[in-house]
Design a protein around this nucleic acid. Structure first.
Lengths: 261, 261
DNA sequence: GTGCCCATGTTCACCAATTCACAAAGTCAC
DNA sequence: GTGACTTTGTGAATTGGTGAACATGGGCAC
């Protein structure tokens, strides 16, 4: 092993890397050759020091006085994220959400092709969605055994989410993304992330309610230049960390504080 | 003011409250009268101490030696989250995802009725989705002005997400949930949360890749009792904080560590 | 080839969040 | 009414992450 492990990359950093990567992709399309941590921070809505620290976990890939080479940084970042090859995904539960996910082109584009669709409803099995025949969930183990490592997506109703997760784990899936509004547990060694609409809305509700306690944030919304350049960044983040929906202005660079009136 | 502000509730706690609330709802349906912090922690996939501390921010609503009254706790929690009345949502962008969201019954059920659908595509305007006529996005300000405070959901393609956010802010919306795969910025006083599919998948990819560094986590998946009771909980959390998709076992209670082989 | 300039990479101090451990406070049995 | 038992609520210690400040080191002008 040459140097396989630099430092252990913090979870918060891991959650931000994909954001940087997407920005780099856009920059590359615009034929931008190099980027400074400051500019990248601005585009990602974070602090420049944080960007530098995050990138330093990947290695010293910047050039002092110049910045980071976009192409090279993209390569290193993709490597760190394990995106050098495709990760097929299998979707269990082909209702409204499952169909939408299956049809979402962004998946395949970014290295996550939809490998198979499953449902437990016999009426759905055999139907074609997004160019794929829906299979019965009983066939999950066989499909996984054939196709190798995949990411499992749960898009079922809440009551069956845990049992689906169990079946995924048993089939050998070690990465699961749960869209069902239910807490599910998996054994150690399996990665689990969740996306929960209702929870997100309720968090927003909290901050909305809370900002109302200090006088009505709404007024300042239209504050200054509505489109002329980006403003005080609060990268907020359903993923990763930094939940920070900011009830009050937090260190407002632009000085447009809502409560001040 | 009697006692409007106890302590300031930490963001991490705010992100967990909705999870507790959902569990309480299920418990109430099962006619469970009281719940201990330990049991609640188990159901939520977190630490019991954390539950107690989280709940203590709401006030001292437990009874020592007994636990928490489910109904009463639900009430207090709903109040804290601002869920005593409905929060209408407006969805901008009625593509695959937007339609799925509009059709998602879970919204209205939980106090977030869909108030209106918008799109910029003239071919979509006038069509009916989920029982609602799609309006042109230009009408957004009028609708918001009429209906009062709403939560804005962005389900557009990435390139227009920022401009949609700007229009929402200008219309007076102060809570935005962004599904578009783009970083958007809003002025202070506006709450922003994001849900990003690609980012979630890439985070999973990282941990999948990483667990492979220590020998292949896949093997241990089937470890012990596949359904017999919940196991070492890792609440992982696309929202809130604690990104923690656990590459390796983290403090595995059950002892089934993947790398051990 | 020399020196200035500029952005990186890293150190350090701070802040937020988690976890432990335990006293306080209530119930229930008798 | 008393005592044992259970579970909460919180203070303190620890961990993880953030942000500012600064030294390091490479490019570029001349």
């Amino acid at each position: 092993m040459a140097e396989p492990k630099r430092r252990r990359i913090p979870e918060a950093t891991v959650a931000r890397l994909p954001v940087y990567l997407r920005i780099l992709l856009e920059l590359a399309e615009d034929k931008t050759a190099t980027i400074s941590s400051e500019r990248l921070a601005e585009l990602a809505g974070v602090n420049a020091a944080k960007v530098r620290k995050d990138l330093s976990y990947l290695g010293s890939y910047g050039t002092r006085g110049v910045g980071y080479d976009v192409e090279y940084l993209m390569f290193q970042m993709s490597r760190a994220l394990g995106l050098t090859h495709d990760w097929p995904v299998v979707i269990v539960g082909v209702g409204n959400l499952g169909s939408a996910l299956a049809n979402y082109a962004g998946f395949g584009d970014r290295g996550f092709p939809v490998a198979a669709l499953f449902d437990a409803d016999p009426r759905k099995v055999g139907q074609v969605v997004a160019g794929r025949v829906i299979q019965h969930v009983d066939e999950l183990p066989d499909v996984v055994a054939e196709s190798g490592p995949v990411i499992g997506i749960i898009a079922t109703p809440a009551p069956v989410a845990q049992s689906v997760a169990d079946r995924m784990v048993e089939a050998g899936i070690t990465s699961i993304l749960n869209f069902a509004p239910a807490v599910i547990t998996v054994p150690p060694g399996t990665s689990l992330r969740k996306v929960d609409l209702a929870v997100e809305l309720q968090i927003l509700s909290f901050y909305q309610q809370h900002s109302a306690t200090f006088g009505r944030a709404g007024g300042a919304s239209r504050g200054n230049g509505k489109r002329g350049g980006r403003r005080a960044a609060l990268l907020d983040t359903a993923n990763g960390n930094g939940t920070g929906a900011a009830g009050r202005a937090r260190r407002a660079n632009t000085g447009a504080v809502p409560a001040g009136g």
